[in-house]
Design a protein around this nucleic acid. Sequence first.
DNA 1: GCCGAACCATACGGTGACGTATGGAAGGAG
DNA 2: CTCCTTCCATACGTCACCGTATGGTTCGGC
Lengths: 180, 180
Amino acid sequence: MAARLGSGDWLAAAKAALAEHGVDAVRVEPLAQRLGITKGSFYWHFRDRPALLAALLEEWEREATLAIIDQVESAGGTASARLLRLFLLTLDAEPRLERQLRAWAAGDAAAAAVVERVDRRRLRYLRGLFAELGFSSPEARTRAHLIYYSALGEMTLGIRASRAARLRAARLIHAMVVRR
Amino acid sequence: MAARLGSGDWLAAAKAALAEHGVDAVRVEPLAQRLGITKGSFYWHFRDRPALLAALLEEWEREATLAIIDQVESAGGTASARLLRLFLLTLDAEPRLERQLRAWAAGDAAAAAVVERVDRRRLRYLRGLFAELGFSSPEARTRAHLIYYSALGEMTLGIRASRAARLRAARLIHAMVVRR
DNA sequence: GCCGAACCATACGGTGACGTATGGAAGGAG
DNA sequence: CTCCTTCCATACGTCACCGTATGGTTCGGC
């Protein structure tokens, strides 16, 4: 069943390797071994390793922007409620991919460009929410940064408290950042 | 003049390579070429590449904790003033090393342990400042996290506004986080 | 049942690094 | 001046991976 595989399988394996061990583990021959196949398959589906990495970046850029924001927008509610919902969602988000992508971006211009675009889009969305709450443009900007940094920090830092503690912290931060 | 060099020169070169291009660029032979010397020298001063990386980690752990905190403590002032001073200092801090070390930590357990220890120490210090301001323990904890995440975000994210804008943002964040 | 296209295996040459072995050179103690 | 230590150069063997070449295998359409 599904003895043959397509470029999608390679991408999935690459994504898994990236999330677990970083971009440096996304190598053709190890992936082939992991897939129980030879690299002959890889060079049929992809031009070379850079092409795989580019595809990986492209896929992440698409997902990273839409995934959470869409989920929040479709739920609706006041700007403040959406903000809290958004923040709480990041508590349960899988941080490994996000983390490894930022690590990748530290040493690679293409990845850095993608991460920067994603950051900009997410920040723009957050600014919009604070604008809805009536904050002036620079105020909205700063508060957007503040809550975004917090979410990223919670996700990417090694220090992780209990879920209960993080939940309490999230509510407190939300209250501070929404308050006039 | 100083034709011969010691392990310190290798460490310095390694540190520069790390800051510029990440841990992956800290390789023996490229460093040797950059130093205008051969790797025969390296394997005299260091056991192997892991030993160099370990030394790099050790040095950073020492500097990263002391450097800023000491500077702030020696200046004195109220807890709030020290907090603001600390935050402003990070605006001019060189973010590349910090950034690359976190990237390194994403794929290496030893580096991750070091970064986590550094984070813990810095957070402990921040918690102390908020405790001085009279915040309860969990409140102090959350506020410490909040301001730490912000500083890290400002340092490590690709998006960097003008210095004036960042300064304004820093003051605003400080005000929010200090307010009861 | 045949054929072309899609897919995979195998074998190869090339590259950039690692670490080792061994033989100098340079510099100070005596 | 000599000798011992410290430091560096050179040459080598190895390894992991890249990308290519080429030949096999499977599958859908006819």
